[in-house]
Design a protein around this nucleic acid. Sequence first.
DNA 1: ATCGGCATGTAATGCGTTACATGATTTG
DNA 2: CAAATCATGTAACGCATTACATGCCGAT
Lengths: 175, 175
Amino acid sequence: MNIRHVILGLLAQQAMSGYDIKSLFKGLTWLIDAPSYGSLYPTLHTLLEEGLVSVDVEPGRGKPSRKLYQITEAGRRELIERLESSELPERSIRAFVRQLILAEYLSPDTLAAHLARRREQLAEYLQRTEYTNDDPTEVGQWLIHDYGTTLARAELNWLDTRLAELKAEHNQPNL
Amino acid sequence: MNIRHVILGLLAQQAMSGYDIKSLFKGLTWLIDAPSYGSLYPTLHTLLEEGLVSVDVEPGRGKPSRKLYQITEAGRRELIERLESSELPERSIRAFVRQLILAEYLSPDTLAAHLARRREQLAEYLQRTEYTNDDPTEVGQWLIHDYGTTLARAELNWLDTRLAELKAEHNQPNL
DNA sequence: ATCGGCATGTAATGCGTTACATGATTTG
DNA sequence: CAAATCATGTAACGCATTACATGCCGAT
């Protein structure tokens, strides 16, 4: 899951410019770093060359002209190939957030699978820390420990709610 | 805040081997990725050459021998220089977690400053999202939005508790 | 007997950032 | 009138990952 896939996934939901993509991430800087233009623009150029995206230039009256990128059929195929082949599972919050950003493009089942996997990781972490909370070797680590536990609990709760919703939708689709 | 500083900060708290450092991070993979040996070991070698750390080789009976690294006075000086000069503030959760890991080495004031800065970022995010929650341009982003809000609230709460504790300690040091 | 954990290391490569370059428009 | 926002782009570089290499020990 690198910028390439993120861009493709975003364009699958909506046509955007490089600037738009950057802006979208800027709103989430407290969670993950926004990609730099130095990686954004060259990647868009590459995708264009490969025919996975197409461009419409909107001549900006006054402002500089925007380049609105759209995903092509070939792009969609490559995206699906990536997303459905669950591949090597990355575990960090960064990877998970990137997946969430693409959520609207994922099938409900794939999304549910992602959330469930994340849930397992968090549950495992919480269980592990409960058993080792008075480990004498861990000298200066209680702060990060406490932080982790608090965040993990909150996230686990959130995941459970979302998973329940998805299950309900599954049982009675568009009531 | 790259691996160099993280390693230095960890060694400032306790003598460790490369393997130990890796293990410490492995327990937090759901939050941030653990550094690879390919970056860990070469960095330790560099720090050794520069005289910022020293080594004690523990011949492992049975197991392979461990290299216990310790920070030197020069290392401590460089660390302090880095940590006290608050420098360009990084904002992502990754950077914040790295700071928390070093928390035990930080002075209470510096730590409080870090937490307060983080608190401001989160508060700003929450305020911003409240005002723009029914933005029509934001098509497929409600899931990440909701996730962000939930996590940010939990983290903000946690920060407030810690900050209150630090303030209390400040007013009556070692009662 | 094989797998996971302990423990260290190197070389090639990938992915991304930083710094630079440009320029008009809106907002304070 | 200065600063922030809109908007795109390139070249050099840094930092870290991946893949590889090695080997013993304890548990299943």
